[in-house]
Design a protein around this nucleic acid. Structure first.
Lengths: 138, 138
DNA sequence: CTTGACCCTGTACTATGGTACAGTGTTTTA
DNA sequence: TAAAACACTGTACCATAGTACAGGGTCAAG
């Protein structure tokens, strides 16, 4: 269970050292234990935490939303109605995102197949692709 | 086909007027025709364009990437190998995003069901849900 | 026992994606 | 026919998410 310092964590999670300290300031990462000389001590779990933050970000979540996501948990003695609500809201957002991605996928696949057939496409096939899908879907 | 001005477009696409002018400066929207007095003239298609930009953004694409996406099209006389490549790369990214969302979904669903059972969860169920999907199998 | 590679805090700067005027012209409406 | 209401350009400002020092301490290797 090797502990390591911030530079090593930055390397493993493929982010800047300053980004890690920034996440700590923002409350996305809990202040880690310190060595006798004051160096931050991390472990493998921290790599996962940062990777999660980066992925969530690439899916269009803001750091504020991710902060909230990371705090979502069922408390042993707290009521959990609120947690459940927020989790369900996020689930709904995720489903919406998946649908949008599916639409973009169809539009891009059409573009690729137009390519393969050597057919030119309209001025904006992406948007038109999305619109024609909507005709079929709704 | 009713043409309308920037304020009306902003209202229909639910964005700020300044955002539309900003997108034009950035090259995300082509400069529209102007009225005799110099007012920008838009139509329904522009609503779709802006809606697309907003959605792509919420899926984690940057304006630079969206600009590229919007320009993706098969040219009548240009070679299309490059267009196809870029479209395929985007398709791969989209598939990756869908997978990540699916993982987040599972983690959140587990959280909700832990909630329903009144069981407390660990310090960070979201990340742990993503990492150890097999243990505990709800 | 010093040099180089790290780490610390604190503060300043940057890029992206807008937003908000200021100063001026145009349209609509009371 | 005047005053809202809207549009124009240009420039300045803002929030978010980092990134980059400055000025200093720690520590292993040579």
């Amino acid at each position: 269970m090797s502990g390591f310092r911030i530079g090593e964590l930055a390397k493993r999670a493929d982010v800047n050292v300053e980004t890690i300290r920034y996440y700590e300031r923002r409350g996305l990462l809990a202040p880690p234990p310190r060595s006798a000389s004051g160096y931050r001590q991390y472990d493998e779990l921290d790599v996962g935490r940062i990777t999660f933050i980066k992925r969530a970000q690439s899916l269009g979540f803001t750091l504020a939303e991710i902060t909230d996501l990371l705090r979502l948990r069922v408390d042993p003695d707290g009521s959990c109605g609120d947690v459940e609500d927020r989790a369900r809201q996020t689930l709904a957002r995720i489903e919406g995102k998946v649908e949008e991605l599916a639409r973009m996928k169809v539009a891009l696949e059409r573009l690729v197949s137009a390519c393969e057939n050597g057919r030119p496409t309209s001025a904006c096939p992406i948007i038109e692709g999305l619109e024609s899908v909507r005709e079929l879907t709704t």
